[in-house]
Structures are given as C-alpha cells and as structure tokens.
Simulated scan of single mutants.
Amino acid sequence: MVQDIVIGMAVVASLIYACRRLMPATSQRWQAALANSLSTASRPTLLRAVGKRLQPTSAAGGCGSGCGSCSTGCGPTSPTTEQPLQFRERSSE
C-alpha cells in the first residue's frame, strides 16, 4: 500500500512538472484559480495563507525586457548583424 502511494505521488509530481513546462500559461491560470478559491473569506485562516502563497507572481516585464506584449512598441530587440565566418589554415610551425 505504501508503495502505491509513493508511486502515485511520483506520477502526480511528474504530471504537474510536465504541465508547468509544456503549458505555462494554462498552469498559471489553474494555479491562480486554485489560489483565489482558497483565499476566499469563508475559508479557514490556514487555507487562506496557502492560497496567498500559491498566488502566481506577475510577469515583471518592462521596456527592454524583450517580451513584446505591451503596446509601447519596445518589443524584442533585433539580432546583431551577421558576420561571415572566415576559415584560416593552420600554420605549420
């Protein structure tokens, strides 16, 4: 029975990790929904504290961060100009 519980916990942890890596926006929405439901005034103090701790952090993007999500037009910077690759023969010393 203990082995089943441990394997189940490992599967759930793997699922959470995969969701956070492959669907970051969706997992943040789910996390925010869970945090909001735990933070309601009708919940006990401990659950409200857990809800406050689970609240996802907001993106700290600003001008020059490269996010390109605001209407200021700062967007991602263009890549530097490309330089051609030059090969040189080894000197036989």
Rank of each mutant, 00 (worst) to 15 (best):
V2T: 13
Q3W: 06
D4L: 07
D4R: 08
I7Q: 11
I7R: 11
I7D: 08
G8P: 03
M9Q: 12
A10V: 03
A10E: 15
V11M: 06
A13M: 13
L15K: 10
L15R: 03
I16W: 02
I16A: 12
Y17I: 05
Y17D: 05
C19N: 13
R20S: 11
R20A: 05
R21N: 07
R21T: 06
R21W: 02
R21L: 11
M23S: 08
P24M: 00
P24A: 04
A25Q: 03
A25E: 03
T26D: 03
Q28E: 10
Q28C: 05
R29F: 00
W30M: 15
Q31T: 11
A32S: 11
A35W: 05
N36H: 06
S37T: 04
L38S: 03
S39W: 07
T40C: 07
A41E: 09
S42H: 08
S42C: 05
R43Q: 15
R43K: 15
P44Q: 00
P44E: 04
P44F: 00
P44V: 02
P44D: 09
T45F: 14
T45D: 13
T45R: 12
T45V: 10
L46N: 06
L46P: 02
L47I: 01
L47C: 06
L47P: 01
L47S: 04
R48Y: 05
R48C: 02
R48Q: 15
R48N: 00
V50W: 02
V50N: 00
V50I: 15
K52Q: 12
K52D: 08
R53N: 12
R53W: 11
R53G: 03
Q55F: 01
Q55M: 13
P56N: 02
P56W: 01
T57D: 13
T57C: 00
S58E: 07
A59M: 10
A59F: 05
A60F: 06
A60N: 14
A60R: 14
A60K: 12
G61D: 13
G62C: 13
G62A: 11
C63S: 13
C63E: 15
G64M: 10
G64K: 14
G64C: 04
S65W: 02
G66N: 09
C67V: 01
C67S: 07
G68C: 12
C70A: 08
C70E: 10
C70H: 06
T72G: 09
T72F: 07
T72E: 10
G73T: 14
C74I: 00
G75H: 11
T77C: 05
T77L: 13
T77G: 14
S78E: 12
S78N: 08
S78T: 11
T80K: 15
T81W: 02
E82G: 05
Q83F: 08
P84C: 03
P84G: 12
P84R: 07
L85W: 12
L85Y: 14
L85N: 01
Q86K: 14
Q86F: 10
Q86D: 02
Q86A: 11
F87R: 07
R90V: 09
S91I: 15
S91L: 15
S91F: 11
S91R: 09
S92R: 14
S92E: 12
